[in-house]
């Protein structure tokens, strides 16, 4: 099972490879990828360097071109595919049907992976991508339970990749317009959720308030840790109850599922976090490498170590982790 790590820049990419990633995924420096943040991602020169570094060490590079192409700028997405192919990417991660069609027609020999943003959650949808674009992998959204993933893995004509660790999207990815509803910008159209330029922090009599485009997302008392106001992780009112109506600030962590995922034949575990620092990438890659190696050496004795969990919890939103939808009770 491949360990697939994120990189938002060259130092993070090198760190990922040096700490045990089998493959790294990156995006270009524009709105063609779903982590389009200031100061992040790869221009053409850096892209070539990234490919060299990864390939010289016998590892793989995946390029995410996984937002939806704008009606007035499809060429930008096509050019992103051209550029990724030109530097020798091992796989293209794509969500948009039009972009997939372009890649499959023009570069049939380059692996195409269905991005998580394409929200492919069942066998018939997988068949759609297989039949139309001959894809080599599907990345599953974080909405399925372990049992559902197992069922799908048994019947899927295409190898599956799952999310293993990182910030938790609780909505079916690619089908969430909450961010554009509140700010005008969404993962699908600009490659960002709850964009930082709309965030305001304010100390008030009632506590520290976080707002997104003016909407109160959360309010913290002195003893509470304030987190980034991702709009689905704030506290809201439903009738008279104030609570995390959608989700708490928390991260996905599936170390304990490693034996299950391997038994199901999942081909790759993906770490979320292209927007995170090289230090994050180092810690996560190292911990997951250790866990995967431990399992390989002695599957029957595999047990998650407390130290691994602590390391990962410290890198997580709200310093807590969850199995998310993999665990039915979460749903």
């Amino acid at each position: 099972m491949e360990l697939l790590c994120p990189a938002g820049n060259l130092p993070a990419l090198k760190t990922a490879i040096d700490n045990g990633a089998d493959a790294v995924y990156i995006g270009l420096k524009d709105d063609t990828n779903a982590r389009h943040f200031a100061g992040l991602n790869f221009n053409d020169g850096k892209l070539a360097k990234a490919a060299d570094y990864v390939h010289q060490r016998g590892k793989k590079l995946h390029v995410a071109i996984n937002t939806f192409a704008h009606a007035d700028g499809e060429e930008r997405w096509q050019k992103a595919v051209d550029n990724a192919v030109a530097i020798g990417t091992d796989a293209l991660i794509i969500a948009d049907l039009g972009v997939l069609d372009y890649a499959a027609t023009k570069y049939p020999e380059v692996e195409r992976h269905v991005s998580v943003q394409a929200s492919t959650t069942n066998l018939e949808a997988i068949k759609f991508f297989k039949n139309n674009f001959d894809v080599q992998r599907v990345v599953l959204p974080r909405v399925l339970s372990v049992q559902q993933v197992r069922q799908l893995a048994k019947s899927s004509p295409v190898p599956l990749e799952v999310f293993a660790f990182g910030s938790l999207c609780i909505m079916a990815e690619g089908r969430c317009y909450l961010s554009s509803y509140m700010t005008g910008e969404s993962p699908n159209t600009v490659g960002a959720c709850s964009p930082a330029k709309y965030v305001r922090w304010q100390d008030t009599d009632k506590g520290l308030e976080s707002r997104l485009n003016g909407v109160l997302i959360d309010r913290y008392q002195e003893d509470e840790n304030a987190g980034y106001p991702t709009l689905c992780k704030g506290r809201f009112e439903v009738d008279d109850n104030v609570y995390h109506a959608l989700e708490e600030p928390t991260s996905l962590n599936t170390l304990e599922l490693i034996p299950d995922l391997i038994a199901m034949g999942i081909v790759s575990v993906k770490i979320e976090g292209r927007q995170r620092s090289p230090a994050y990438v180092e810690q996560v890659a190292k911990t997951w490498r250790m866990a995967l190696d431990r399992y390989q050496q002695s599957p029957e004795n595999y047990a998650v170590e407390g130290a691994w969990m602590n390391t990962l919890a410290n890198l997580s939103e709200g310093s807590q982790t969850t199995l998310g939808a993999y665990h039915r009770k979460w749903q």
Binding site: F68, A71, E74, D96, L97, D101, E124, N188, T189
Partner: peptide
């Protein structure tokens, strides 16, 4: 959902692409 698109295509029947199908551009329309 694309599963329904797949099934309708296999049935060789016309369909409406609903608002949750991500069709943002001309290539996808095609």
């Amino acid at each position: 959902d694309l599963s329904a698109v797949q099934i309708m295509h296999e049935l060789n029947m016309p369909f409406v692409a609903g608002p949750a199908i991500n069709c943002y551009n001309l290539s996808t329309l095609k």
